[in-house]
Simulated assay, not measured.
Amino acid sequence: MIALATDLGVAITLFASTNLDDLFVLIGFFSDPRYRPRQIVAGQFLGIAALVLASLAGALLSLVVPPAWLGLMGLVPITLGLRRLLALRGDEEDDAPARAATLGNALAVASVTLANGGDNLGIYTPVFATASGPRLLLFVAVFAAMVALWLGLAHWLVHHPVLSAPIRRIGRVATPFVLIGIGVMVLVEAGTVSSFTRWAARG
């Protein structure tokens, strides 16, 4: 029982420490009328599932694909952030119903989750590598529950009768900069910027 409680604590700490920034990103998505809740839910679960699978194969992946190339995924949130900045100036929300019906929104959420998952991969991979089968299943189950908790909390904050209005206003303005910041962080921490700078200098 003590071992189970310890493993639960480890799993919760692992998820919370590596996904705190995702909570703010989810608030931004829920504040955007172009994204339906079911698209955000599907995208977030898809992104976290992909991170877990990538962590399980992390050691092999690191041997095949250089981290600098994986860092190019940081371009995804940068692109989304720039599009949102342009949307703040224009009338992009006029076609919100059409865009909300596309599968692309769920994939966009998943892509941001993946791009922001560098710390997840770095922490999950060694923990998963040393975990037994039952312990690994427990981690996966706790992660799934925590994803649901994160989604529920973000949705509740955005629709709170008192907090919803300021959160929607702040989220709409702040989310583009959060996404761009995440993308830049991914590019820098993966060594993509330094690698391509050295390549350009040699070329």
Rank of each mutant, 00 (worst) to 15 (best):
Thr113Gln: 12
Leu114Pro: 06
Ala115Thr: 04
Asn116Pro: 06
Asn116Asp: 15
Gly117Asp: 05
Gly117Leu: 01
Gly117Thr: 02
Asp119Ile: 07
Asp119Lys: 13
Asp119Ala: 14
Asn120Pro: 08
Asn120Glu: 11
Asn120Tyr: 10
Asn120Val: 14
Asn120Thr: 13
Leu121Gly: 06
Leu121Met: 11
Leu121Pro: 06
Gly122Pro: 01
Gly122Val: 05
Gly122Cys: 07
Gly122Thr: 08
Gly122Glu: 11
Ile123Lys: 10
Tyr124Thr: 01
Thr125Pro: 00
Thr125Leu: 08
Thr125Ala: 14
Pro126Val: 15
Val127Cys: 03
Val127Pro: 03
Val127Trp: 01
Val127Arg: 05
Phe128Ser: 04
Phe128Gln: 03
Ala129Leu: 11
Ala129Phe: 03
Thr130Leu: 15
Thr130Ser: 15
Thr130Val: 15
Ala131Tyr: 07
Ala131Arg: 14
Ala131Trp: 05
Ser132Glu: 14
Gly133Pro: 10
Gly133Val: 15
Gly133Glu: 15
Pro134Gly: 07
Pro134Met: 00
Pro134Tyr: 00
Arg135Leu: 13
Arg135Ser: 14
Arg135Thr: 15
Leu136Thr: 15
Leu137Met: 15
Leu137Asp: 11
Leu137Cys: 12
Leu138Asp: 01
Leu138Met: 14
Leu138Glu: 02
Phe139His: 07
Phe139Cys: 04
Phe139Lys: 03
Phe139Glu: 00
Val140Pro: 09
Val140Ile: 15
Val140Arg: 02
Val142Thr: 07
Val142Tyr: 03
Phe143Thr: 09
Phe143Glu: 00
Phe143Met: 12
Phe143Asn: 06
Ala144Tyr: 04
Ala144Asp: 02
Ala145Pro: 08
Ala145Met: 10
Met146Asp: 07
Met146Trp: 04
Met146Ser: 11
Ala148Leu: 12
Ala148Pro: 06
Ala148Asp: 01
Leu149Met: 13
Leu151Gln: 10
Leu151Lys: 09
Leu151Thr: 07
Gly152Ser: 12
Gly152Ile: 05
Gly152Arg: 08
Ala154Gln: 00
Ala154Tyr: 00
Ala154Leu: 06
His155Ala: 15
Trp156Asn: 10
Trp156Val: 12
Trp156Asp: 10
Trp156Gln: 13
Leu157Tyr: 01
Leu157Lys: 02
Val158Asp: 00
Val158Ala: 02
